[in-house]
């Protein structure tokens, strides 16, 4: 499902060069649950963004579902993000001016270009599934952290993505709601056969994955 070959990421600041990823090779099968562990600043977020067609590597190739994503045009790559990938971030990243329902509908609206039935009913169904059925018209500011994260997960699922990429999805939550989030993600992984990649600091969470990738000094151990 996901394949990376010789991925390097180097940040240049003037004459200064900061290599963050130094040759990452990995392969993640369809339906697999993989966690990525590593110290802060190791490049976990960077790697996740590169795997998610969001950030071009300085060097190397990434294949998503068989196609070389950074060889695609911008609009094709955006389409891949829209249809194939669901992102979940540590800071939820919901749009503050929109209600939970509108936020969740958004990826559906981008792909279908119409507000008719489809995305709305799917978004309602998903918000019900994550336990926010009664909070459809609340803005993110009116939701707790855990609730916002559940809305963000519903948003990530709205287009039935083949891959879920989560960057410390529980990083800002207490352990109770954090566990709820991981349970939810795991359920999607098992029931929808979605490939799940979770970046985390917590060994507790990492242990639940089929496979743990440890990243250190820009390389996988």
């Amino acid at each position: 499902m996901i394949k990376a070959k010789g991925v390097h990421k180097i940040y240049t600041n003037g004459a200064e060069k900061l290599p963050v990823l130094k040759g990452i090779d990995l392969k993640i099968e369809k339906g697999e649950f993989v966690s990525v562990l590593g110290p802060s600043g190791a490049g976990k977020s960077t790697l996740l963004h590169i795997l998610g067609a969001l950030d071009e590597p300085t060097q190397g190739v990434v294949y998503l579902d068989g196609s070389d994503v950074y060889g695609l045009t911008d609009s094709k790559r955006a389409q891949a993000r829209n249809r194939l990938i669901g992102f979940v971030f540590q800071f939820y990243h919901l749009l503050p001016e929109f209600t939970a329902l509108e936020n969740v509908m958004l990826p559906g609206l981008i792909s279908s270009q119409s507000a008719a039935g489809g995305p709305r009913s799917r978004a309602k169904e998903l918000l019900g599934l994550v336990g926010l059925g009664a909070r459809l018209n609340h803005k993110p500011g009116q939701l707790s952290g855990g609730e916002q994260q559940r809305a963000a997960i519903a948003r990530a699922l709205v287009n039935k993505p083949a891959v879920l990429l989560c960057d410390e999805p529980t990083g800002n939550l207490d352990s109770e709601s954090g566990k709820g989030i991981i349970d939810l993600l795991e359920r999607v992984n098992k029931e929808e056969k979605a490939t799940l990649v979770v970046v985390t600091h917590e060994a507790q969470i990492a242990k639940r994955a089929d496979r743990i990738l440890k990243i250190k000094d820009g390389r996988l151990e």
């Binding site: 971030f89 990243h93 981008i110």
Partner: peptide
């Protein structure tokens, strides 16, 4: 800027 990033992450393209 952040909202633009969010929109891109859920699949908005440049022309959008």
């Amino acid at each position: 800027t952040k909202d633009i990033g969010i929109l891109k992450s859920i699949g908005a393209n440049r022309s959008g």
